[in-house]
């Protein structure tokens, strides 16, 4: 049992991990074909992830409905929407033009609902900015000044306030922001290399899951 649950996955991770690293540095036709095959395998595995996600969603909401946990009514709505929209999708053969039922749902239900949820952010950000941007310390004051410059510099009214404000905002983006972002990205990339190496050589095993 240990052989199938631990040894085989570890061996596969090692073999394919090393293979993918090697192929990147060898521009040979056979390695290009191998990458093509791997990419197709990846797409097939990716499609299965959808099945796993769907079953997890159904399981979690059915559980909430059975136990009648607070807010279980929302789970009924979620499952009903899932079933109805899937049936509609099959009937209209996935036609997403606004004239078809499937496309109508997309254009007149999903699109306004998602856009409305995202739009609410404007109100919450305004309220959060009012509460958070207080010049209590030197660092907070610097943050506050930069935020005001960027907020004004990134909208047309900024150039009416001060002609060079958009350029100042762009300078903040291109130099201090870029330097900080690059440092973070390098740190993250090095950590990813380290984690990948740990997975390849079998030190990091959390992806195998727990239990017997």
């Amino acid at each position: 049992m240990v052989f199938w649950k631990r040894t085989v996955p570890l061996a596969l991770a090692f073999f394919f991990g090393v293979l993918m690293v090697v192929q990147y540095f060898i521009p040979h036709k056979s390695f290009a074909e191998l990458l093509d095959t791997m990419a197709r395998w990846g797409q097939i595995v990716g499609a299965f992830a959808l099945v796993v996600g769907l079953s997890s969603l159904i399981h979690s909401h059915v559980f909430k409905i059975k136990r009648q946990v607070p807010g279980w009514g929302y789970s009924v709505v979620t499952l009903a929407a899932l079933v109805i929209y899937t049936v509609v999708g099959f009937i209209s053969e996935g036609d997403d033009s606004p004239e078809a039922a499937f496309g109508w749902g997309y254009h007149h239900l999903l699109m306004p609902m998602q856009a409305s949820m995202f739009s609410l952010l404007a109100f919450f950000i305004a309220s959060a900015a009012y509460k958070a941007f207080r010049a209590r310390t030197l660092e907070a004051t610097v943050l506050l000044i930069i935020a005001v410059i960027v907020m004004l510099g990134r909208v047309p009214i900024g150039s009416y306030v001060y002609e060079k404000l958009p350029q100042v905002a762009e300078w903040i983006f291109s130099y201090p922001n870029m330097a900080a972002r690059r440092a973070i990205m390098l740190g993250v990339a090095l950590a990813m290399v380290a984690t990948s190496l740990r997975v390849i050589v079998g030190i990091e095993r959390s992806y195998l899951g727990g239990g017997d």
Partner: peptide, 16 residues
């Protein structure tokens, strides 16, 4: 968007 940014900035200034 410009005017909403102005309102936020006005509130931030008032708060400070």
């Amino acid at each position: 968007q410009s005017f909403s940014h102005l309102v936020i900035i006005a509130f931030v200034i008032l708060g400070n």
